[in-house]
């Protein structure tokens, strides 16, 4: 039963990506794609197990949509911030690597958190060890680097905790 659920989820993800990709639908393409997705899901590939962590409860789906908007807002804010840093005559940068702890347990959740942090300009996830993330910052404030980092992490964590459990 457990293998069935993650296979179903993997199939839904693959089928969804295929549907988006062939957008002006034609039945022929649809059938071929679904057949190949089914084959991939039934093969005993090790990576398939990750899909078991995807939840399909309505609350999670709503939080996913909200999360995408939060992420886009954050990308806009940070991109403009970095753009201004680039065009200033004296580069206002003070790089450093800061350690942050995360509350997330699931592997997919941590992956999504690290990816979101890297997507927002000004921060790159350099390394993950257990529940500790090491983040390279373009400007480390001397005083409140820890609180600032914790803020950006918990902002994403809030949603990812619900989405990935």
């Amino acid at each position: 039963m457990k293998t069935f659920t993650y296979r179903l989820k993997a199939f839904l993800v693959l089928a969804g990506v295929w549907l988006i990709l062939i957008y002006p639908f034609s039945l022929q393409e649809l059938y071929t794609g679904l057949a190949i997705a089914l084959l991939l899901v039934l093969l005993p590939l090790p990576g398939n197990r990750v899909y078991a962590e995807i939840g399909l409860a309505p609350k999670r789906l709503i939080f996913t949509v909200v999360y995408i908007f939060v992420l886009i807002k954050e990308i806009f804010r940070a991109n403009i911030d970095v753009a201004f840093r680039v065009i200033k005559p004296v580069l206002p940068i003070k790089p450093g690597i800061v350690k942050v702890k995360t509350r997330l347990k699931s592997r997919l959740g941590r992956l999504a958190l690290a990816n979101s942090i890297t997507l927002t300009p000004g921060t790159i996830t350099v390394e993950i060890k257990g529940d500790e993330l090491f983040i390279h910052w373009i400007f480390v404030d001397a005083g409140d680097a820890d609180t600032a980092t914790q803020k950006i992490v918990s902002q994403f964590e809030k949603y990812l905790e619900v989405i990935f459990g």
């Binding site: 450093g96 690597i97 800061v98 350690k99 060890k129 500790e132 090491f134 480390v140 001397a142 680097a145």
Partner: peptide, 11 residues
């Protein structure tokens, strides 16, 4: 600047 933070190197 000796105060550059590098928590990963420390770890």
């Amino acid at each position: 600047d000796l105060e550059v933070r590098d928590d990963l190197a420390v770890e």
